[in-house]
Amino acid sequence: MSKLAIIEIPEPSGGPLALGVGTPTDSQRVPVWLRRGLEASLVWVALLVAWFLAAAYLPLGKNPLIPAPPVVLEALADSLPELWEGTLSSFTILLPGFGLATVLGILSGLAVGTSGRLQDAFLPFARVAAPVPPTVYIPYAIAVLPTFKLSAIFVVFIGAFWPIFQNAVAGAHSLEQRYRDNARILGFTGFEYYRRVVFPAALPHIFSGMAVGLGFSFILLTVAELFGANAGLGRFVQYYADFGDYPRMVAGILYTGAVTFLAMTLLEAARTRALFWVK
């Protein structure tokens, strides 16, 4: 077989090459953005068709587990006011939890990342504590903290804190020797050193940590809401699941996905804006 391969390889090499010359002129007729757009929409169209077919032909009984797209769309339109209220309620948990995790994660991460002694003291603990799945804190947080809201904020905070902290530490480590030398020569010390040199240098890492942290925040938010909330996005899905109202439930899932996507897109836009100097 190997012998055959050796003989065959040089032979057709003229063929594909000649074809390769021909293809660019063909693809130039369709603009790249249009071609990419068409390819991307293919996936959406395929999924939608699969959904229609599944709803129409899968035998799942009287109360179909897979409601057809128009039914879900109607449920979504009906539930929009309720979903909007749920969003507001969820954000009173998400924003304080994620915001606090961002502020404390950056401050402590940069401090630990720039000090050998703080590093020796805290990193061993962080290495043990960070991988604990934050979901396991939920029942205990609900038991210990006075309100459900506070415990949910706490759990979101824990989930977002570790990735932001760890990335801030890595960001502080990534500060190049030449910038440190420069800062020393110019006499940057204390807070000014952190504000002008360490923080901007660590920003690319910090944004990565925030993206991971935001993803975790949404997961923990919705999971916590399944446990005991009386409003919110996760609660909405759980509530209608209990009644077997699958159109509303699927609408809730789609809506939550859209909100998450929007939040991630906003963070990404902020990142692009803040890090235009990274080349």
């Binding site: 002008r196 901007p200 920003l203």
Partner: peptide, 9 residues
């Protein structure tokens, strides 16, 4: 320095 040490940000 040889490696341009202006702060890039």
């Amino acid at each position: 320095f040889q490696d341009y040490a202006l702060f890039p940000w």
